[in-house]
Design a protein around this nucleic acid. Structure first.
Ligand SMILES: [Mn+2]
Ligand SMILES: [Mn+2]
Ligand SMILES: [Zn+2]
Ligand SMILES: [Zn+2]
Lengths: 145, 145
DNA sequence: GTTGAGAATGATAATGATTATCATTACCAA
DNA sequence: TTGGTAATGATAATCATTATCATTCTCAAC
């Protein structure tokens, strides 16, 4: 589906900042970007956008169900494409790379644990902070991408 | 162990703000307090402390291993006594109550998942946001305590 | 294609949590 | 008791995020 149609479906007018921000997330999954990441990337690519617009658009996209907001370690939140299905994250403490996973055993176990204690699960976040053992892991942190 | 001795062991001088803050956490477990919670409670109890001191002391206690910092939903972080052993949390979306749990199956599964993907787990956070089904759950949010 | 009402933008001020400064005060070893 | 030094607290500064508001842009109607 074209991006401008995506926006139309979400009840949002097709504007340059919105199209460019949608572009950044592209079709590439496992892409977790902060407002500042996006602001910086747009300026680099010659799109003269305001930081206020970035925050506004991200919030609108989140409310429209296009994006999902995440809170990893650190102070700033990141956004990713809404993949329609829940998943959890492994964050590399060396390079900041984020990998996604879904595990039925963990999911089921959480419901059981909550039920045993008199809770009905609404949502959850599981973030594993780990060291990447791969050879190509750049041994320095550089913002969660 | 007396509180002033606890402070001495941590290499910290025994001062009124430090003793009073340590007091607040007391022996009661499952006590998760934000800097502002603590600041407010101290003022209420007649201890005229500055908010800067609260933040400073919390950081010192965390570095000394007396407290652990947590990040639940929302903007402010909370602290709890360092119980020496890892645990995860269920947060009631109605009243904000926090319950703790530890599940060996989930812990083990995380290590397996990470290993399969070439990661060595360093740390993790699992927070379940749920609705408390108990009758005495006050149906309003009132800050995470 | 032109146009106008209303939405969107961006510069900037405001906010809320947290940290840094720095002059004053309190702790404690001698 | 006292002096050196660490701790405190009022306040300014910082950082991410949100609110304001005058200006610009979009798009449906003509
Ligand atoms: Mn993800
Ligand atoms: Mn806890
Ligand atoms: Zn999950
Ligand atoms: Zn755990």
């Amino acid at each position: 589906m074209s991006q401008s149609l995506q926006l139309k479906n979400a009840g949002l007018k097709s504007t340059l900042p919105r199209l460019k921000i949608l572009d950044l997330f592209g079709s590439g999954l496992e892409c977790h970007l902060s407002a500042d990441d996006i602001y910086r990337k747009l300026l680099e690519s010659g799109v003269d956008v305001g930081i206020a617009t970035v925050y506004r658009v991200l919030t609108q996209f989140e409310q429209a169900g296009l994006l999902v907001k995440r809170h990893f370690e650190g102070d700033k939140s990141v956004f990713e494409l809404n993949q329609g299905k829940h998943h959890d994250h492994i964050v590399c403490l060396q390079c900041g790379k984020v990998e996604e996973f879904y595990d039925e055993i963990i999911e089921t176990r959480q419901k059981t644990i909550a039920a045993e204690r008199g809770f009905s699960v609404n949502d959850h976040t599981l973030s594993i902070y780990a060291d990447c053992l791969k050879a190509d892991c750049p041994n320095k942190r550089q913002g969660i991408v």
